[in-house]
Amino acid sequence: MVAAPQFDPVAAAAQIRAYLAGKLHTDPPTADADEQFAVETERLRKTFARTIQRPAFLSYARAHPDRARAVVVELRALLDDIEKATAESESRIDRSPR
């Protein structure tokens, strides 16, 4: 009979910290870039939707509109970065010799 591994609270805390910091990847990388992109974008949509629909988040945002607007500005900047990267990529494709 194989003994079950013992729970290591220090290791568990380290894994939780790494996960929360975005440094622990729980999904194995996929070789299919399209599939990986779909997985990541769906994860982003779900996380965003879940967060902004929480009553505590909405209540705080309503009570502190300046802070809420600041978060919106940050999120828009991140989205702008994505859009800029895709535009640069399209620009390189358009300039490539045919």
Rank of each mutant, 00 (worst) to 15 (best):
R62A: 12
Q53L: 09
G22T: 01
Q15P: 00
T47R: 11
D81P: 08
T30L: 15
A77L: 13
S91M: 10
D32A: 05
A21Q: 14
S59N: 11
V2H: 15
D32F: 04
D66A: 15
T26N: 09
L24V: 06
V10R: 11
S89C: 13
A85F: 13
A18V: 05
P55H: 09
P5S: 03
A68K: 02
P28F: 06
D66F: 07
V72D: 08
P97M: 04
A13P: 02
F57S: 01
S89N: 14
E83S: 11
M1T: 11
F7V: 03
D34Q: 11
A31M: 14
G22W: 02
H64Q: 09
A49Q: 12
K23D: 07
Q6F: 03
P55K: 08
V10W: 05
Y19I: 01
V2W: 13
D94R: 15
P9C: 00
P29N: 01
R69G: 05
T30A: 15
A14C: 02
H25C: 08
E42P: 05
E83W: 10
R98W: 07
A77K: 10
R98M: 07
P55T: 05
D8S: 02
D80E: 09
P29H: 00
D27T: 12
T30W: 09
L24F: 08
P5E: 08
G22N: 02
L24S: 05
R98I: 10
A3Y: 10
P97G: 05
R67P: 00
P9W: 02
A18C: 07
S59L: 09
V10S: 09
F7E: 01
I93C: 06
A31P: 12
A31D: 14
A68M: 05
L44H: 09
R76M: 10
E40K: 05
A21W: 04
R43Y: 09
R50A: 15
E88G: 07
A11W: 02
Q15W: 03
S89E: 12
L79S: 14
V2L: 15
G22F: 00
P55R: 10
L58W: 09
P55Y: 11
P28R: 07
T26V: 12
F57R: 03
P9F: 01
A11S: 01
A68D: 04
T86L: 14
A87P: 02
P28N: 05
V71Y: 13
E42W: 06
E42L: 08
A61L: 04
Y19Q: 03
